[in-house]
Amino acid sequence: MAIAEESSASLTGTGTGTGAVRAAGRRVAPPPYDGSSPFPRDESTGQQRVPTWQLAFTALIVAFPFLALALAAWLLWGSVIGPADVVLGVLLYCVTGLGVTVGFHRGLTHGSFTPNRPVKIAMAVAGSMSFQGDVIGWVAVHRRHHAFTDRPGDPHSPFRFGTSLTGELRGLAHAHVGWMFTADTTPAAHYAPDLLADRDLRAVSRAFLGLCVLSLALPFGAGWLIGGSVHAALTALLWAGLVRVALLQHVTWSVNSLCHMIGQRPFRTRRHDRATNLWPLALLSFGESWHNLHHADPTCARHGVDRGQIDITAAVIRLLERCGWVRDVRWPAPGRLDTRRRA
């Protein structure tokens, strides 16, 4: 499904973090965004309180890297990481990471291809095991990000606080993790009605917490079976569970933050959209850091379209297409790319 640009009227809608304010009982649109000023404050979200359970759960997710480092220091005191830990970690990183990039992102958010039912469910389950949120909420937030990229309404733009040095440093932290602690909610009924209408995806969304538990139970159980001890199980839980989750989270969050501030912009995007290509993240993100082309042509199934741009996600989509498990893949068309490429 292509993501259409929001009309100027929709910028004053409720519940989307657009900065509209009330005056004399009516909603008044904020002044046009100039591309450098801090985003207008959204009075509606300012009056909301983030539920304690939501703050606690978000804090737990964000704290994974620190928990992993503490456990690593304890376990590595007199011991080393084993080959089974590495293999399990790489395997689960690929499964859950591709669940996000192939499934959550290019498939379900942007409709770059149409999967059959088993693949659709498998993608949603794998992506949910990444600890990045339930599938419907993830898709809704990302579609909203594309509707308002780097302007008021974008839930995680690094330019929320303006383009001064201080503003960009605050914005970088906000785009990376800070946005998850705000009361700025994204209504799934507005941004992901197709997913809400899908019985399979509603079931996967409800199972999110259980899938997070499974994401950690699998390496723990595999480590126990392979190593035959609790120590082996805990080591696998650390490296293939906690560290794997932490690394994948921060790679994904870096696409939100760094890939809007650092890198190249060979393709034209909408006004104020500063999405970039950041090659150092290409392998770890499975091709998602070729972010400039993605924002220039959001429904394209391949993001790394130029010579030497490795895009593992696109390769997996190609394999699924050849197996007959996905169809209607929107591969890059040279003519369409030429119209978007900077002179």
Rank of each mutant, 00 (worst) to 15 (best):
F104M: 13
F104P: 00
P115E: 13
R143S: 12
G127T: 06
S112L: 09
A122E: 10
G133P: 00
S128G: 13
V141E: 13
D134P: 08
G137W: 11
T101H: 08
F148W: 15
G103V: 04
R117F: 06
G127W: 00
K120A: 13
A140C: 10
N116L: 01
I136P: 03
R143H: 11
G133R: 03
V135D: 04
A140W: 07
S112E: 02
V135W: 03
H145E: 08
G103R: 02
G111N: 05
R144I: 03
S128I: 12
V139G: 01
S128N: 08
F148S: 00
P118C: 13
T114A: 14
R143M: 13
I121R: 12
G127S: 12
L108H: 11
H146Y: 11
H110F: 13
T149S: 15
G111C: 11
S128M: 12
F148Q: 02
V141W: 04
R106M: 11
V125T: 08
A140N: 06
G127A: 10
A147H: 14
S128E: 07
T109K: 01
L108D: 00
G107H: 03
G133A: 06
Q132H: 11
H145A: 05
G111P: 08
H142D: 07
A124L: 07
S130W: 01
K120E: 15
V119P: 04
V102F: 15
A122T: 13
F104D: 03
G137Y: 07
W138I: 05
I121P: 00
V125N: 03
G111F: 07
H110D: 11
G107K: 05
H145N: 09
F148E: 00
G137L: 06
V139C: 10
H146K: 02
L108R: 01
R106D: 10
T114Y: 00
S130D: 01
L108A: 11
V102Q: 07
V141N: 15
F148M: 02
G133V: 02
T109Y: 01
G103A: 12
A147P: 02
H110Q: 12
G137Q: 15
P118M: 11
S128T: 14
T149I: 08
V125H: 00
A126W: 02
M129L: 05
T109H: 01
F131A: 13
D134N: 15
A122H: 07
N116E: 14
S130R: 10
S112R: 07
F148A: 00
V135P: 03
G133N: 04
V139P: 02
M123T: 06
A140L: 09
H142E: 11
A140Q: 09
G103M: 09
M123S: 11
F131S: 10
A140S: 15
S130P: 02
G111A: 12
G107E: 08
V119K: 03
A126H: 04
I136V: 15
V141C: 05
H145D: 08
S112G: 04
A147V: 13
T114S: 13
V139Y: 04
T114G: 03
P115W: 10
H145K: 12
N116A: 06
H145S: 05
D134K: 08
T114D: 08
